[in-house]
Amino acid sequence: MAVDMRLPTFRSDSRSNSLFDRKVNKDLVVPGDVITTDTGFMRGHGTYLDDDKLTASVAGEVERVDKLICVKPLKTRFNGEVGDVIVGRITEVQQKRWKVETNSRLDSVLLLSSVNLPGGELRRRSAEDELTMREYLQEGDLISAEVQSVYADGALLLHTRSLKYGKLGQGVLVQISPSLIKRQKTHFHNLPCGASIILGNNGFVWLYPTPGQQDEEAGGFYTSLEPVSLSDREVISRLRNCLLALSAHKVLLYDTSVLYCYEVSLSQQVKDILKPEVMEEIVMMTQQKLIEHEG
């Protein structure tokens, strides 16, 4: 039994005057900030014209492509692009399609024709398949998938036509802001600390014990309900708390940053990582390590 009660403290702004920020000279704006008074620019997303002055309407980073000025918001829903890896939760089973919650503005769609059913790629989808859709994926199930295309209204069409995608088994879901996920070649990582991670572009991060040899016959719909070993659990819980700590301090997430944070946190107990002062210390050490190793 442990209770940790304390008085709230002001969030320290040690980051703004530390050495880390001086390296970054990106254009950060808040709503109402004038980006430029030059009329030669075009107005993009996240901006508006106020008396011929181009002004930011969201808090974020200014991006300039030729004459077009946009502001990329820091806190946003997920705006999917083709090829993004996502982790999502099934919310509805409809005819020939599943609806998937992916932290975007509209529910995404996963068509029955764009999943790998057990029995090989070239299997025809029959009427029976439509009737047994709920046996493959039911409401509440988590999946990993890729964005196949984006509809005109911004809704995403997903596919799981690869063995690496599909239904997710035992593990922990962590939800963070999609702007904190670094875009990379691969979003699936087997971390050397003994767990695997899927960093979904939509801000859903899935932590799971590194699987052994997988049975390919099941087509990714078989999930093991065997108990996970205590050591794996500890690693996963530690990673979960590290992810939350990093996201609380707005550190970009990718395999290296997560791994460094994990290594730094090893001196602390898993449940202590989420205490504010420990969190701050761990994140600071992680950032230092990242700077050292990237030169």
């Binding site: 940790d4 509440g140 979960r240 449940k271």
Partner: peptide, 28 residues
């Protein structure tokens, strides 16, 4: 999902919850 519930359940059985607490710990 079912698998997530199983994970939480087994974790509590082993006295290690998803966020690293034991069964009688409060959050911060």
């Amino acid at each position: 999902s079912e698998a997530e519930k199983v994970y939480v359940l087994h974790g509590i059985r082993d006295d290690l919850r998803v966020d690293g607490r034991s069964c009688e710990d409060y959050r911060h």
